[in-house]
């Protein structure tokens, strides 16, 4: 199948104000996406998940590497020439409270996000806006509402409708359920699943909540301090996680904490070896040497020196 998106060795660092240090947000990240697939990205805050999404949407410029959308290199394009691609790739933001202009109604927002769709007349766009609201299970009365008149869950539905408005191929969802109530989370996830089934849109969904990732993704990428540390289909990852960091994340959810890490994430200095060094209970001499993602099976990659030598992951009660 043809690759819809391909990211090759993307690198992005931010200058820290103190002492000329650099924070590495993306460290040679490579990944590719097929049409209709849902890719989950997991990792703690500061692991570069959102940076990856913003780079993909050209909300920020990567330092080196390349991004291909439908085979076309886009990371070097100036903003004007990237504009046609905006229609194809959309985003849902984490916090519904800040992702809507307080001065615009839902209708304004939806029409505004259809401005790249030039083949429709204004009235057709209105009809489409109504149809979009139905797709996200909201009634027509929402068209005239302002953001402050809606709840977080309703706003997140509108955010999804906004992302769907230009009929994109890819939607990047940045923690779409993180700021919602537990009861609403489930509804939103079910809706996402349905939309994907009906439309065949490719989703990239970022979350630190493994249950969300597990429920919706086909494939999962685990990120730690700007690096991809493990990548595999979702069943494989939850069944047989290889990287100690992935294991720590999974064991933290089921509260066995069998693979707990020590301390906190160390600032992303550009050292060649394993970034988990010092936090990992399995680390040994040799872990500080330069490493890369290595294939374990045909669809499972991991970045760990000791992936094959550490005890089997014991899963007792997974969520």
């Amino acid at each position: 199948m043809k690759k819809l998106v391909e990211i090759k060795e993307a690198f992005k660092s931010f200058n820290l104000r103190s002492g000329g240090k650099k924070l590495i947000a993306l460290d040679n990240v490579s990944l590719s996406l097929k049409k209709g697939e849902t890719l989950g990205i997991v990792g703690e805050s500061g692991s570069g998940k959102s940076t990856l999404g913003k780079a993909l949407l050209k909300l920020l410029q990567i330092d080196s590497g390349s991004i291909f959308i439908k085979g076309q290199e886009v990371s070097d394009l100036p903003n004007i020439e990237f504009r046609p691609y905006r229609e194809k790739i959309q985003m849902v933001f984490q916090n519904p409270a800040t992702s809507f202009n307080p001065m615009l109604t839902v209708e304004d927002v939806l029409l505004d996000s259809m401005q790249l769709v030039i083949e429709l007349s204004k009235n057709e766009k209105r009809l489409r806006a109504l149809k979009l609201l139905q797709d996200v299970e909201l009634g027509s009365r929402f068209l005239s509402l302002y953001p402050h008149e809606m709840s977080g869950g309703q706003l997140q539905r509108v955010a999804l409708a906004r992302a769907l408005a230009s009929n994109p191929d890819i939607i990047f969802l940045d923690e779409p359920t993180a700021s919602l109530d537990m009861s609403v989370r489930g509804q939103i996830l079910t809706m996402l699943n349905n939309l994907q089934k009906n439309r065949g849109t490719t989703f990239i969904i970022v979350s630190h909540d493994l249950r969300v990732i597990r429920g919706i993704s086909d494939r999962v990428v685990v990120m730690y301090l700007g690096q991809i540390v493990e990548e595999s289909p979702v069943e494989v990852l939850f069944d047989r996680p290889l990287h100690p960091y992935t294991r720590a994340l999974i064991s933290a959810v089921d509260e066995t904490d069998s693979d707990r890490l020590k301390g906190e994430a160390i600032s992303a200095e550009n050292k060649p070896g394993c970034k988990l060094l010092g936090r990992c209970q399995y680390s040994k001499a040799g872990c500080e040497e330069e490493q890369s993602l290595s294939m374990v099976t045909s669809n499972h990659q991991v970045r760990c020196w000791r992936a094959n030598n550490i005890p089997q992951f014991s899963k007792e009660k997974l969520p």
Partner: peptide, 24 residues
């Protein structure tokens, strides 16, 4: 976020400044 969203929706800079940001 809503300004980034306007950018993602394909708004050009003048419209972002005068339609999306300035009224706020």
């Amino acid at each position: 976020d809503y300004v980034l969203a306007a950018k993602v929706a394909g708004n050009k800079s003048p419209r972002i400044i005068f339609f999306h940001i300035l009224p706020n």
